[in-house]
Write a protein that binds this DNA or RNA. Structure first.
Length: 273
DNA sequence: CACGAGACCTGTTCGC
DNA sequence: TGCGAACAGGTCTCGT
């Protein structure tokens, strides 16, 4: 579910920057693993023994991963399609799809809820063991128009699947990819190596703009998954099949590209050239 | 290398 | 009303 802006929103909430209590400085007392497969690494017994007593030093984000710097280990969480986190009083009732709970001092609980069970947790001495495969962070300074253009020139792949590939660029998901391509006026099936320098720069700008907008609106809330965001009310094309394109008024089209629903404006996003 | 299909999962919505 | 199909924010693996 969450893409970069939703994960960023959750990370800042857990840092205590949005009103509630924060995690940094608290000590993990105990772990409850309710669905074993949620834990990618290490084995459940070692996880429980190792994480108990470790303090949370900082909460960050890399692409769609939540990164918890403990002492001495690191905890990584990936929410995948339906994951969500709650920081709540330890006395609050557990919810139907809670998969992993961490009890913290101050009578708090961090609950990892995940209806579809795709989410994963890792406890690692070195987070790079998992994060090292990720491509550039799109909002970081080292992600540049020239760098993007250079990478685009090295592949003949279609833009939509390419932007979803986390080794090419890390953090975009189905929503923000469709939104960025629409803002850039690029067709989802355009070949990467066919973009001009200025088209690559336009795409670079669209990616950053759409992600920054998502963060500014606290992410997107759709259906029963994830709450609190407002960005779903500002979609240009995503889940707006048949509705007018905000730029030209043509009806938004939905197709399937790489087995993912794909929304675009047939007028603003032409295949050719 | 690039692509498609299938797997992993449950819940909601849509069409008949 | 009921029931099956389609669909959902992600990623991995396998076969071609």
């Amino acid at each position: 579910m969450p893409e970069l802006p939703e994960v960023e929103t959750i990370a800042s909430t857990l840092r205590g920057e949005r009103g509630g209590p924060g995690l940094p400085g608290r000590v993990i007392q105990r772990a409850h693993l309710l669905w074993p497969r949620t834990l990618a690494e290490p084995a459940p017994a070692e996880f429980a023994a190792r994480i108990a007593g470790q303090p949370v030093r900082q909460v960050g984000r890399r692409a769609k991963y939540l990164v918890f710097q403990l002492e001495p280990d690191w905890l990584l969480l990936h929410l995948r399609m339906s994951g969500d986190l709650r920081l709540e009083p330890a006395s609050a009732p557990l919810q139907p799809h809670d998969r992993l709970c961490l009890e913290l001092d101050g009578s708090l609980r961090l609950a990892f809820n995940d209806a579809r069970k795709f989410g994963r947790a890792w406890l690692l001495a070195d987070p790079q063991a998992v994060l090292c495969r990720l491509g550039p962070e799109p909002l970081a300074e080292d992600f540049t128009p020239a760098g993007l253009h250079h990478k685009l020139m090295q592949t003949r792949r279609q833009l939509k699947p390419l932007l979803l590939d986390q080794t090419f660029i890390a953090g975009l998901g189905n929503i923000y990819t469709d939104e960025a391509l629409h803002m850039a006026g690029l067709h989802p099936l355009r070949r990467a190596d066919s973009l001009s320098t200025s088209e690559a720069e336009t795409l670079w700008h669209a990616i950053r703009s759409v992600l920054a907008d998502g963060i500014r609106r606290n992410g997107a809330s759709i259906d029963w998954v994830y709450r609190g965001g407002d960005f779903q009310n500002h979609f240009r094309v995503y889940q707006r099949t048949g509705q007018p394109c905000p730029v030209c008024g043509a009806a938004v089209v939905r197709t399937v590209v790489g087995q993912r629903g794909t929304h675009y404006c047939p007028q603003c996003q032409k295949t050719g050239s």
